[in-house]
Design a protein around this nucleic acid. Structure first.
Lengths: 200, 200
DNA sequence: AAATTATGTTTACTATACGAAACTTTTGTG
DNA sequence: CACAAAAGTTTCGTATAGTAAACATAATTT
């Protein structure tokens, strides 16, 4: 006897949420109505290829069907809060930047917020462009920075301005103001990536 | 003929990366060696329950087996960049906040950066606490805000200070300075959630 | 209410997933 | 090379996934 109660629940919930009939789902996914009916009633499981068919036809991530609850896809603990004041955070020095990682008391964060002091002033001193997984948002707090990327011409940003880039594109930030430039940057820690070089 | 080439590749790669034999994988997952062999050679697909077995036994997310390449889990396009200057962004007015969404020219971002003007001054005016999926980081740019959450005592933050919370905990930000308070906030848009109320 | 239509379930059959054991290939070890 | 041990593949029988078509039931129309 096949058991796939989760799967059935997920599908039923998804179908109800969108007001689809079995026929409609069948049309979208090319899976027969009878099969869908049995799946929802826990009489049948599904094979890999059918799961992909479901996912693509209904335009949802396959993970939807693998959630324990079938309704709450967020496994992160509830109700955490962390405060950081002006001087707070964990300071890390690197050749090109001085980082002040914020909210390091929370682990397994999805966002990595960090205050960055930009010191390097020429692309030669900087060395090769940096690339890593994920995406990042950089907002200038003070001073002026020059944003270098692999695919675009360099661009200078002042206080209040910001840039958003795919981090897998090579990038570098230089300081081009008299005083040192300071930015507030936020990265995403890719949850599908096991290793992470940030102290989150 | 069952087709599950992706699955076979993913499993083979995962197994090679960990130096496991088929017997070892079989032991961990309670799936027979013969089945595993056939899967790797694309002769067999797998059912829902077996996929869960694989995922749990090898301690990886099921999504690993649904990646197109079987090696690169990041489906986002490469090399995007977006700039926003001081006045830029898409302004949205709500009763409690005025939002200026940044980098709206990029869709399917993982991060949602937004400049928020805080206008509401009392928790009564604010109404019920807000909750939604994901996490958020709020950095005060100017003025002072009072952070209300479901599980903690209210806390006042000034310029340069910040807070990080799980957004599924009820929360509200009030303005407590003479002048209107301004913050830079970043949310994550949960990729497992299909609908999204942000203009990303 | 009878006829019609839309939706979900059951039946009966075919295709395929799955495991046990036989077989083949590779990798040592004397 | 012989032999053994380990790793992987193939065979074959059984269980289950999958479909089409018949059936049942609810919702609309005439």
């Amino acid at each position: 006897m096949a058991k796939a109660v989760q799967l059935g629940r997920s599908l039923k919930a998804l179908r109800a949420a969108n007001g689809w009939s079995l026929a409609e789902v069948s049309r979208r996914t090319s899976i027969s109505i009878s099969t869908l009916s049995k799946v929802e009633n826990g009489l049948l499981s599904l094979t890999y290829d059918k799961l992909i068919g479901l996912s693509e036809g209904l335009d949802v991530d396959v993970s939807v069907f693998f959630n324990k609850a079938g309704i709450n896809p967020d496994p992160t603990p509830l109700g955490r809060r962390s405060l950081d004041d002006i001087g707070g955070g964990e300071i890390i020095d690197t050749p090109n930047y001085q980082y002040r990682y914020l909210h390091t008391d929370l682990s397994n964060k999805q966002l990595i917020p960090v205050i960055v002091e930009h010191t390097t002033r020429t692309i030669e001193d900087f060395g090769p462009l940096v690339k890593h997984t994920g995406e990042e948002f950089v907002h200038v707090l003070s001073g002026r920075i020059e944003v270098h990327t692999e695919l675009y011409a360099p661009k200078i940003l002042g206080p209040g301005e910001s840039v958003y880039i795919d981090s897998n594109m090579g990038h570098a930030y230089l300081c081009v103001s008299e005083e040192p430039a300071q930015t507030l940057s936020v990265c995403v820690s890719d949850p599908t990536q096991s290793a992470d070089d940030h102290p989150n």
